[in-house]
Write a protein that binds this DNA or RNA. Structure first.
Length: 378
RNA sequence: CCCGGGGUCGCCAAGAGGCCUAAGGCAGGGGACUGUAACUCCCCUAUUCGCAGGUUCGAAUCCUGCCCCUGGGA
C-alpha cells in the first residue's frame, strides 16, 4: 500500500501513480477541497464525472462539527460523505492559525477558540493524528505551524516547532497501527528562506515518511518568491515519493508547480471564486457579473466540454450570479474544477509524451493572471 | 372644491438656516478571493434637494406661487 511508482519524467516533472486503499491515484493531481466533508456546491457524483480522483477534507472543521468520533461511528469519512475514492485530510494546523481566535501556541500544541461558538479547544500533534485516524482519509498530514513566510524570526520558530511536532505525529501514527490504511505526509516549512527550507527538508526526510508536502506558500509572498522557493526546495525532497504543494492553486500555479516536480495540489480557489461569481479559463479569469456578459450567448469558455459550457450561455450564468441563485455556484464550481482537472490530465499526458515544456510555454503565453483583465474571446 | 401629509440619486431614506459640493441601505458599475468561517470583502455611483421666485452674509431646510403624489371631507 502507498507505493509510488513513476511512469515518466520530463524535466523536473513526473507522472506517477500512488496506490491507496481507495484505489490508484495518478499524479500529478489536483484535489478539490471539501472542507466540511463536502466540496461546496458539487455532488460526489459530479466530482467523479469531472474526473476528480482525490478530495481534501479538514480535521479542524470536522472535529468541531459534527465531531470526528461521530464520523468514525458512522463508518468513517468516505462512507459519511459518499466519496469512495482517495481522500486526504489536512491536519488542522493551518486552520488553527487562520481561523481560531485567541490561539496560544506553545511547544506542546495550540490552544484556540472555535470559530463556531467560541469554545476553547486544544490541538497537539497527537490529537491531530487521532482525529485524522477517526476520519480515515488515505493521506493524513502532520500537524504543523504555517507562519507568514516573510518574517524570518517567526518562520524560524514555526519551522522548528513543525519539526518537533512531525516526530510526535509519526510516533502517534506508529502507535495507532494504521500504517496500511493511512499514509502520513510531512510538511516542509521555512518561508522564503532557502537555508530554512533546506534544513526543514533534511530533518523531515530523515523521518522517511511516505510523502512530503511543501507548506507555507501562497500565503503572502510574491509569485517570483514562491517559484524560487519551489525551484530550491523540490530537489531536496525524495524523488521516489509524492510531493505535495499545499493550498495551491491557480491555473498558472499548477502549470508552474507541475513543471517544477510537484505531484499533488489542493486549493479552494476554483470553488471559492465560483461562489463569488468568477470563472477560471485557460486564458484567465472572467468575472461573470460583468455587464459585458449580459447578452452574451457564448458559453463561459469557448470549446469547453463541461456541463455548464455545453448547456448554458454567459448571459444565463450572469443572470444566475446576479440573482444570487444556487445554480450559479454549482455551474461555476463545476466549470472551474473542470478547467483545473483537465489541465492536470493534459499535463500528465504531456509528461508521458515528453512534450510538457512546449505545453507549458504555450499555456503561459496565452494566460493572463488575475489582476490583468482576461480576454473574453467570442 | 375644502382640510391635512408629502415631494432629497433607479428604489427606500437621513437631514429641519451655516458642520450638506447632502448620511445610510438596496439596486447598479468595477475589483479581490490560493492547506475554505459559501451567499463575503474592497472601491465607485446626487456641485444637488418637484419647479419658479423671494427673505438672508448664507436655504434641501424659512416665505410666496405653481406642479405632482397621498389621507380625510364634500
Amino acid at each position: 500500500m502507498f507505493s509510488f511508482e513513476l511512469q515518466a519524467i520530463c524535466g523536473q516533472a513526473r507522472a506517477g501513480v500512488l496506490q491507496t486503499p481507495h484505489g490508484p491515484l495518478p499524479t500529478p493531481v489536483f484535489a478539490p477541497v471539501g472542507t466540511q466533508a463536502t466540496v461546496k456546491a458539487v455532488e460526489p457524483r459530479e466530482l467523479s464525472e469531472l474526473g476528480a480522483t482525490l478530495v481534501l477534507s479538514n480535521t479542524y472543521h470536522l472535529y468541531l462539527r459534527p465531531g470526528d468520533d461521530l464520523i468514525s461511528n458512522l463508518g468513517g469519512l468516505h462512507q459519511f460523505m459518499g466519496w469512495h475514492g482517495p481522500m486526504l485530510t489536512d491536519s488542522g494546523g493551518f486552520q488553527v492559525f487562520s481561523l481560531g481566535a485567541l490561539r496560544q501556541i506553545d511547544n506542546d500544541g495550540v490552544t484556540f477558540r472555535s470559530h463556531l461558538d467560541g469554545s476553547t479547544h486544544r490541538f497537539t500533534p497527537e490529537k491531530s493524528i487521532q482525529i485524522q485516524h477517526h476520519l480515515g482519509a488515505d493521506i493524513i498530514m502532520c500537524f504543523d505551524e504555517c507562519p507568514p513566510p516573510l518574517d524570518r524570526a517567526v518562520v524560524e520558530a514555526a519551522t522548528a516547532r513543525t519539526h518537533a511536532w512531525a516526530t510526535r505525529c509519526l510516533e502517534e501514527h506508529l502507535r495507532s497501527g494504521n500504517l496500511e490504511q493511512q499514509a502520513l505526509f510531512g510538511i516542509v516549512q521555512g518561508g522564503i528562506f532557502p537555508d530554512l527550507r533546506a534544513e526543514s527538508a533534511q530533518i523531515l526526510t530523515a523521518l522517511d515518511l511516505p510523502g512530503y508536502a511543501i507548506g507555507g506558500l501562497a500565503v503572502g509572498e510574491t509569485k517570483p518568491q514562491m517559484l524560487a522557493t519551489l525551484d530550491q526546495t523540490v530537489p531536496l525532497l525524495p524523488s521516489n515519493k509524492p510531493r505535495y504543494l499545499m493550498g495551491v492553486g491557480s491555473p498558472e500555479d499548477l502549470v508552474n508547480g507541475v513543471s517544477r516536480g510537484i505531484d499533488i495540489f489542493d486549493c479552494v480557489l476554483p470553488t471559492r471564486v465560483a461562489r463569488n461569481g468568477s470563472a477560471l479559463t485557460r486564458h484567465g479569469r472572467l468575472n461573470m457579473r460583468n455587464l459585458q456578459y449580459a447578452t452574451d450567448s457564448a458559453p463561459i469558455e469557448d470549446g469547453c466540454t463541461c456541463y455548464a459550457c455545453t448547456n448554458f450561455s454567459r448571459a444565463y450564468v450572469r443572470h444566475l450570479v446576479k440573482a444570487g441563485e444556487i445554480l450559479a455556484h454549482q455551474l461555476l464550481s463545476l466549470h472551474n474544477l473542470h478547467v483545473l482537472l483537465t489541465l492536470m490530465r493534459e499535463m500528465r499526458a504531456a509528461i508521458i509524451d515528453g512534450t510538457l515544456p512546449a505545453y507549458v510555454d504555450e499555456f503561459l503565453a496565452s494566460y493572463r493572471p488575475a489582476g490583468q483583465k482576461a480576454q473574453a474571446p467570442r
